[in-house]
Structure formats: C-alpha cells, structure tokens
Simulated scan of single mutants.
Amino acid sequence: MRADKVTRLLESLSEAQETLISECIPAGARSHFLASRREALLGLRSLLDAAIDRTKEPSEAAGKKSPSSRSRGSIDISD
C-alpha cells in the first residue's frame, strides 16, 4: 500500500500548491509561475518523447525524419 500513500501525498502537495498560488501570490506573479509550470511540463514531454523514441525498433527509427516531425497533442494545464 506504499503506492497509495505516495499518491495521497502527491495529491496533498498539489492541492497545497494550488491553494498557495490562488490565495497567497499576487496575480502578476501567479501568471509567471503558471507559465513556468507549463514550460516544465513541456520539458517533461520532450524527455518522454526522447525515451519513447529510444524504445523503437531499429528499422522503425531509421524511417523517422526527426524528433520534431512527430505530431503532438496539447496538454491542458489550466484549472
């Protein structure tokens, strides 16, 4: 059940972050923090894309043009 505890802890931290951002940080600063959060998520997506690309079969990877040619969906980070 350790995974359950970790999940609950992460949810609690996320809720605390949202409360801190919405109630304690001025609107001008809030927009910067939310933009940095978006950039962090985009960075994680790039890391995941690279890891996924490394798992492809050699023949499949040889036919690929470049990592930037991959179509990507959007990530909704708004509340």
Rank of each mutant, 00 (worst) to 15 (best):
S31W: 02
E57S: 11
K56T: 10
S12I: 04
R45N: 00
V6G: 00
K56Y: 10
D49H: 15
R38W: 02
S59L: 13
P26H: 04
L48E: 15
D4K: 09
F33G: 02
R45E: 07
R38H: 08
A40E: 06
S74H: 11
R72A: 02
E11G: 04
R38D: 14
S69H: 14
C24T: 04
A61E: 07
G28C: 09
L34K: 08
R37P: 00
A62D: 09
T7A: 14
R70K: 11
K56S: 04
L47T: 12
A27L: 09
Q17H: 08
C24E: 10
R37N: 08
L34T: 03
L47S: 13
S22H: 01
K64W: 12
R72F: 01
R38Y: 05
E15L: 13
P26A: 07
A29V: 13
F33T: 01
L10P: 01
R54I: 00
A3P: 04
G28I: 10
L48H: 06
S66N: 09
S14R: 13
S66E: 15
Q17K: 12
L41T: 15
E23K: 04
H32G: 06
G28H: 14
K65P: 04
S22P: 00
C24N: 06
I75A: 09
M1W: 03
A50G: 07
L48P: 00
E39G: 02
L47W: 04
R45M: 03
K5M: 09
F33A: 03
K65E: 14
L34F: 01
E15I: 04
L48S: 13
V6I: 08
L9H: 03
I25P: 00
A27S: 09
I75H: 09
D53Y: 10
L47M: 07
A40H: 13
S36Q: 10
E39M: 10
G43P: 00
L44T: 08
E18Y: 01
P58Q: 02
P67W: 06
D53F: 08
R54C: 02
S12G: 15
I21K: 00
E57F: 03
V6S: 11
E18V: 04
L42R: 09
K64S: 13
S74K: 08
E18W: 01
S31R: 12
T7C: 05
I77Y: 11
S74A: 12
A3L: 08
E18C: 01
D76V: 01
Q17F: 06
H32S: 13
I25E: 01
A16N: 10
A61S: 15
K56I: 13
S14V: 07
M1T: 06
I77P: 11
R45S: 05
F33W: 05
S14L: 11
R8T: 07
A51D: 12
G63K: 09
L47E: 06
P26Q: 05
I75T: 14
S46K: 14
S59N: 12
Q17N: 10
I25M: 00
R2S: 05
A50K: 11
